[in-house]
Nucleic acid binder design. Structure first.
Lengths: 341, 341
DNA sequence: GTGAAAGCGCTAACAT
DNA sequence: ATGTTAGCGCTTTCAC
């Protein structure tokens, strides 16, 4: 079914039918009703490509996922984010175009998206220091929103990010308030922006308390179970070990728990644990893992916000940068208790 | 830059330029070279929507991801699959359209995709028993490939699946060959097709050996760390416990290991473990988890195969069902050893 | 309030 | 080997 046929059936012009369907004011209510009924009856949906061609808007947002060489974009995070963004898109009748490309081809992909006019805007994932994509997209004139920030000076673009620094500062302060003095930090790789900010927050909390963060108690590395295990184990082996851990992801925390269990310690009594994880949903029923006690935020939420921000920018036709900084929730559980005597 | 301008610059007709760019044979080599050079120079890319409108092909494949109510489609699996499929698409100049929708709206989404003519075909994720989507897509006449199978009779559609049954049969037989007699199975929810097939394979191996699989040693439930821990712990508490586990996912295996560690057993000596996981990549560096010893296959591979199959079907214009059954690799490691005396 | 006609950027049949 | 023309399905002036 297409406009032509539908208008023929109705005995109206294509123009009127189009106007009725698109809620133009100049159509009489009677006609509109009749048109909409007929459209529904014949399951008519405007051909999106024809529509795009005529309007110059593609009604699609692009997500470019660079693959392989680097793994800054951890899969589960990405899935959660996409789910959030997707919700917003479908609610606003936009499509989501996913390009999974070797990171070498990333620039070419952006150029193509722009030249082929297949999207109205793009979301940038996993920003790096001085990220070249930002300059590229600016020069291409295509609206974009970055999920995360680069740590360098230039923040002259739109972004949505979690307040990682503050989140870790709060977690540390919370433990200090419970009487803990020696905290262990199990963190991700520090060349990743979020990990650096988390460490900064951790250090800031120490500073205001006049405490010293022992370098040995600040581990940075791949976010794996094994890494969490190894680092927690070695920290616990210290003659003067930490009495609490702040862990940068659930998967590492699982390793931390194993180390605690090996050391015959009881969580919440002998040792406390706080986890920060943005994407708990990738561990189905993550919460049934008894270690769970976390500062909780959500990439899912970030996905929604990025998508909404981008649509707003496109809608407004105004590209002055916007920023959203997400705060985290501190949810407590049985794995966190006062410092042991 | 568009065709019109480009052809004007070249002093040729749009037709010739189009033909040159699309590698039509009737264009002279000299012209083609000239045209391609100019196109490259001006960074010309055909407007994809105009092209689609003219050709009737959208050059896009749809993936509909139902969200929320059910969680059969575990995020990480999905991410890995998408990455594989995406590779194939970009290699073949297709776009990937992702629709994340509440599962209630799934049918409507398919109808829309068809009516709006926004995709040339779709991939169906997470098939259920007597899945209504299959009938729907057939009636809509839109080419599709299913990732997985429904267990019911009707396999009159194209699918790509892993040979779960055979994989678990082999794993069990491998352990039997090592002298194990009592095996524990830690499996996913059995209403999910793959879990059922896995159990079938497990049982089949027992049968050919004349062995009896104790129901208490076959656990089925949510694929979480906690579930793996609880079940392994209770099985190990049996007066006559299993000497080996076959585990249906890495995350459950992490729980299994914790239980083993709690029980003061040494893996590979006192107790063996084999893991089957289709999507190891979602645990970054999954292999550094020392428990790792797995029958390994890959959803990533499945994604590629689904995508390729769908493109072939679309290309051939022939919808007779095709099937691909993926076999798994059995990779051994230090967590698997002979049965203890 | 409704319609006729042009045009979005491309491809494809039909010339030549 | 190249050009002319029509048309894909829609929106959008412009006219009535």
């Amino acid at each position: 079914m297409n406009l032509k046929k539908l208008s023929k059936i109705l005995g109206l012009s294509q123009t009127t039918v189009s106007r009725a369907l698109n809620n133009y004011p100049e159509v009489s209510e009677a006609t509109r009703e009749r048109v909409k009924a007929a459209a529904a009856q014949h399951n008519y949906r405007a051909n999106i490509r024809a529509k795009s061609l005529a309007t110059g808007r593609s009604m699609a947002i692009g997500h470019v996922i660079p693959i392989s060489t680097r793994h800054e974009i951890v899969n589960p995070i990405f899935a959660d984010f996409i789910a959030g963004a997707g919700e917003i898109y479908s609610r606003n009748h936009h499509d989501m175009l996913l390009s999974v490309v070797p990171d070498i081809d990333e620039e070419r992909t952006y150029r193509e998206l722009a030249a082929k006019a297949s999207v109205d805007g793009v979301i940038v994932h996993g920003p790096r220091q001085n990220d070249p994509r930002i300059a590229l997209l600016k020069s291409l004139g295509i609206p974009f929103v970055v999920h995360g920030r680069t740590s360098d000076g230039d923040t002259d673009y739109s972004w949505v990010d979690v307040n990682n620094r503050r989140s870790f500062e709060r977690a540390a302060n919370f433990l200090f308030d419970l009487g803990h003095i020696r905290l262990g930090l199990i963190n991700g790789l520090e060349f990743m922006d979020f990990a650096k900010r988390r460490k900064d927050g951790f250090l800031a909390a120490h500073k205001t308390r006049g405490l010293h963060a022992h370098p040995v108690f600040m581990a940075t590395g791949e976010m794996t179970e094994g890494f969490g295990y190894n680092k927690a184990q070695s920290m616990l082996g210290d003659p003067n070990p930490p009495t609490a851990f702040i862990v940068s992801s659930m998967i590492m925390a699982i390793g931390v728990r194993r180390a605690i269990s090996d050391a015959q310690l009881k969580m919440g009594r002998d040792i406390s644990v706080i986890i920060h994880d943005d994407a708990l949903s990738y561990l189905p029923n993550g919460a049934d893992i008894p270690i769970f006690t976390a500062t909780k935020s959500s990439v899912h939420e970030a996905g929604k916000l990025c998508a909404q921000m981008l649509l707003d920018i496109i809608d407004a036709g105004d590209q002055t940068p916007r920023h959203t900084l997400l705060e985290t929730d501190l949810t407590l559980g049985e794995s966190t208790g006062p410092a042991p005597k």
